[in-house]
Nucleic acid binder design. Structure first.
Lengths: 409, 409
DNA sequence: AAGAATTTGTTGTCCGCGTGAACGCAGCGG
DNA sequence: CCGCTGCGTTCACGCGGACAACAAATTCTT
């Protein structure tokens, strides 16, 4: 957004070029395929400036121009040159680490998943074992990458608290991790040195849904991930809300029912004890060992149980606190909530409407993830791609070419 | 922060100049008195560029240079020229509307309160009556302004929900206002046409404490205003968190005790029913008609009652939810909490430590307002000054000179 | 006390980058 | 077929920040 990272600095003309180049790339990335005319109107710059920027992106190997257009033209005049992501351009590795499985994908600009692999992981495994499994998946996924395509970085989604200053996983309760430097572990297992970004899964879900999911164009959005634990990712004013340490959005531990059940955090009746995976499982009489497959079990229902409807109301009541606190325009219901909401949507809506303040309530919309269960994965790709939008030239400078041979060697 | 308002736009060189001039002014405003050398290092620009910018600010009548310095020098070399806010430079009118009184001040750049006036207002009065009273205070405060000094705008702090798109006061429960266009009312009573900015008092408290109070340099800060109603203003990543409609931060209606007392919002046991002004009054057996003077009553205590200690614990428990949700580095306790915290700080701290997650807890600090009870007032000044930092030249273009004679005529 | 060292203000030049006008080009419509 | 419209291309221009050289104002050193 801003031409420099730290606020309070001045802008010099190098920064202008960086910013404009990055902004153009962000637009091309968002749309996948655009025209120079559209970029001109979007960015408010002169035709000739846009031409220069587009040419630079092209000479960097990021984009390419298209002339032949099959689509229906609109209006008279010379058709504008198309701008498209280059097929052998820069790419990233995205990792979505779940409680029971890891998904790894090679993702190009435009958010295209070029390759994908996944494997189960044991939740009682040591972090280095998980790291080795992820590294193996990465090797497999990189296999088919063009030799000339640069690897910009690796983005990792983790279900836990991640310190933003250095990416340390402070706590991942369901993996039983404390202070794990998972980025370093993966890099060591790969024998590579590329930029690694790690963040919380809900934060990344929010980011992905904001960029290319249900919340495109929505600048105040919250992604609530209802899994065994409940967390939220917040986009406020178009920017990720991170908090001082990077732990913002832990709405699962909002006080909900002081007379309720004990939570692993030590308190009584946190919201996630009433609406988390275990609570949902109980509401549908699902055996505890099948909680990991709760999605599929829930999909078997057509009519909700009475207990499930009560859970829906509790979800709505909790969302009301979120609405009052953040005043979002949209709440995306991810995780198990994605299959829960079609069943008990009426109860969730009623619970929310009952408890939220009228003013923030009137502008909020509940939505399902536009990216299905890939939100966190694509969010991981987004944070890995982010340096490209801040400074394309510098990001390509630190990128790695011919990764395949480096991995073999 | 950013050279243009809307994201996604390109930057041209006019924008660079605007941004650099605004950023320099922001620094001068923040420090009150600086040197060109310091600005050079802060903004990362060349000496000659800084000289040009400083000269432009001076020719706009905003700042002036100082050569004679009485302070202790440090290090060798030619002493740097000072940059100081001009005494007859641009100013704003700040209005802090409370439940029982209105404070109006004339505030110059640097946050200096140049003049101040206040008057009681009747909480059962109509909005236009309050507007007339405020207008009278504004006339009094403008009296002493230099004829050449331009009035940049009016900033108003309101204890209620303010829609950010147009500044409409959607709801101010303790003033019994619904959908009041208070900015328009004040302007009509004055017969002037200047930019008016209105916002919630807690939001403005947060802003002021961030810029020149207890939270200078703290980019993730929450100001909790504990009055009859409880609200919060949030600074996240150095930027105000507003939410889609501008209503973010209504933490007073977080679910706290589902078996509790009814709240005016229609729910049971909202946080503010347990820690708001009426709850505090009850805890110290203060008669309900003296709630407005609760500050002074509380200051009479040296040893807290048992009920007050319980209230302190409840404050801590509620703050824990805030800490888990926002992960701030600092929480500033405003309103009645400002006098409550010195009495029951131990209980508040313990309640917070007991309920917050370890990771976000370890980096948070509780603090009292560095600006005393003027936080909201100075925050109102800040939002009125803000256009100056975005584009000084344009803001001075819309500013009003010789306000005094215009008001008389 | 006088010169060296250091830091800053000032001046003139240079260069990068966006702008704008003029021209050529490609598709549409009559 | 030709005119219209909108876009790409080219070039001169201007603005703004960087840079180097010099002057000025202190402090430090001898």
């Amino acid at each position: 957004m801003s031409p420099q990272r730290r606020a309070g600095l001045g802008t010099n003309q190098e920064a202008v070029r960086r910013h404009n180049l990055g902004t153009m790339l962000r637009h091309v990335h968002g749309a996948g395929h655009t025209s120079r005319a559209e970029l001109t109107s979007l960015m408010g710059l002169n035709r000739s400036t846009i031409a220069g920027l587009a040419g630079e992106l092209e000479s960097l190997g990021i984009s390419e121009h298209t002339t032949a257009v099959g689509g229906a033209r609109q209006g008279a005049g010379r058709p504008s040159a198309g701008v498209r992501i280059a097929p052998d351009g820069p790419y990233v590795i995205a990792v979505d680490l779940g409680v029971d499985r890891a998904v790894v994908a090679r993702v190009g600009l435009g958010g295209r998943v070029l390759e994908r692999a996944q494997a189960p992981v044991h939740s009682d495994g040591e972090a280095w074992q998980v790291g080795a499994a992820v590294a193996a998946l990465i090797r497999r996924v990189v296999e088919g990458a063009p030799a000339t395509a640069p690897l910009v970085g690796i983005g990792i989604s983790v279900p836990g608290l991640v310190r933003r200053s250095d990416g340390l996983v402070r706590l991942a309760p369901n993996l039983e991790w404390h202070d794990v430097s998972f980025g370093g572990i993966v890099l060591a297992a790969l024998g590579l040195d590329v930029p690694v970004s790690i963040a919380n899964d809900a934060d990344l879900g929010a980011l992905a849904e904001h960029v290319r999911g249900a919340g495109v164009g929505v600048d105040d959005l919250i992604y609530v991930s209802g899994n065994v634990g409940v967390g939220a990712g917040v986009i406020a004013g178009g920017v990720r809300l991170e908090g001082a340490g990077g732990y913002a959005g832990e709405v699962g531990h909002l006080r909900f029912n002081p007379q309720g059940r004990p939570c692993h955090c030590g308190n009584l009746g946190c919201w996630e004890t009433e609406v988390g995976g275990h609570a949902i499982a109980e509401a549908i009489h699902c055996p505890p060992d099948k909680v990991a497959q709760l999605d599929e079990v829930l999909e078997g229902f057509t009519v909700p149980t009475r207990e499930l409807r009560a859970t829906g109301t509790a979800v709505g009541h909790g969302l009301a606190s979120i609405v009052n606190t953040f005043n979002p325009r949209m709440i995306v219901l991810g995780g198990y909530f994605r299959v829960l909401y079609p069943l008990v949507g009426a109860e969730v809506d009623a619970g929310l409407a009952d408890r939220a303040l009228p003013a923030p309530l009137e502008s909020v919309t509940l939505a399902l993830p536009g990216l299905g269960s890939d939100s966190a994965l694509l969010g991981a790709a987004e944070i890995a791609l982010d340096p490209l939008f801040v400074d394309p030239v510098a990001a390509l400078g630190t990128a790695l070419v011919d990764v395949r041979s480096r991995l073999v060697g």
